[in-house]
């Protein structure tokens, strides 16, 4: 049985003529890491909101088809049940900061407080998460007086602290420096190894190629390709759909055009290093 199952989902925002999610059917397995890729406006965030259950609830509009979690329609879950099962990191970190607390430490603790977790446990978890996300040095700061990248890490940390089974994460690294970006991918990898299910929207395609299992590629509200990462990310036709492909794939293609027989489906750095060593006879 699929863990999360979308069947023929079509969704139209209120007061809009055309649906922005068109007949999407995807099955998500437990414990896997899925990356959603697609051009701007292709429906990535909207799809996240559907999986999280904010659509149609919060946004209203018209939805067709079914969305099930563990065999039960999302509508049958209470708000509380979904909140504790699915952690959602918003695209704009500013929207994640509750403003209910005036320092970063308490901001990260806030969700746990609401779940009624005991104080010593909250402390332990918050400190662990701050360590993991390199936010400990921000503990006493006001969450609204942070740099963009710092705020994005605090938003991510506040969801990690809740230890949900499923993470829906919408572009968590858009404002991060390269080192912090890698840190986020390492954390996600760690979550996956703990058995969590990950659904990540991200443009940094080389990192997706290294870390993800399966890719959902969207174009204009439709799934144009869905499957194992090597199969999806080596499909050169995705470029016309506004989807970036790994440098390795483009490099191999350019080499082939120059008459050098580079293999297909090379998507990670190690795979490319092996291939180039072979080509250059090392």
């Amino acid at each position: 049985m699929p863990y999360i199952d979308l069947k023929n989902v079509t969704y139209t925002y209120p007061l809009v003529k055309e649906p922005c999610i068109k007949d999407i059917s995807v099955s998500i397995e437990k414990g896997k890491f899925y990356a959603i890729v697609g051009a701007n406006g292709s429906g990535k965030t909207t799809l996240c909101n559907i999986i999280r259950g904010f659509i149609p609830g919060f946004y209203q509009g018209e939805i067709e088809g079914t969305v099930e979690l563990e065999g039960k329609s999302l509508e049958e879950y209470t708000l509380g049940e979904l909140t504790s099962k699915i952690g959602y990191v918003f695209q704009n970190p500013f929207n994640q900061i509750t403003g209910a607390r005036d320092n970063v430490y308490e901001e990260i603790a806030y969700g746990l407080e609401n779940l009624g977790v005991e104080v010593p446990t909250i402390r332990k978890k918050v400190e662990e998460v701050m360590e993991l996300t390199n936010t400990a040095y921000l503990a006493d700061k006001n969450p609204f007086e942070l740099s963009g990248g710092q705020q994005q890490r605090v938003a991510f940390a506040s969801v990690l602290a809740l230890e949900p089974d499923i993470f829906v994460i919408d572009e968590p690294t858009s404002q991060l420096d390269p080192k912090e970006t890698e840190r986020v991918f390492d954390i996600i990898d760690k979550m996956k190894k703990m058995g969590k299910t990950i659904i990540l929207v991200e443009h940094k395609i080389e990192l997706i190629a290294e870390y993800a299992d399966d890719i959902i590629a969207l174009e204009d509200g439709r799934v144009v390709k869905f499957g194992e990462k090597h199969d999806v990310l080596s499909d050169l036709s995705l470029i016309e759909k506004g989807i970036d492909l790994p440098q390795t794939v483009l490099l191999a293609d350019e080499l082939r055009k120059m008459g050098i027989p580079a293999k297909e489906k090379i998507i990670t750095k190690q795979e490319m290093i092996g291939q180039l060593k072979q080509i250059m006879g090392k």
């Binding site: 697609g38 051009a39 701007n40 695209q91 963009g148 572009e171 858009s174 404002q175 443009h203 470029i239 506004g242 989807i243 970036d244």
Partner: peptide
């Protein structure tokens, strides 16, 4: 200030 954040290839 960070115009490239979150942009796709067309962006």
């Amino acid at each position: 200030d960070e115009p490239t954040a979150g942009q796709d290839i067309r962006g």
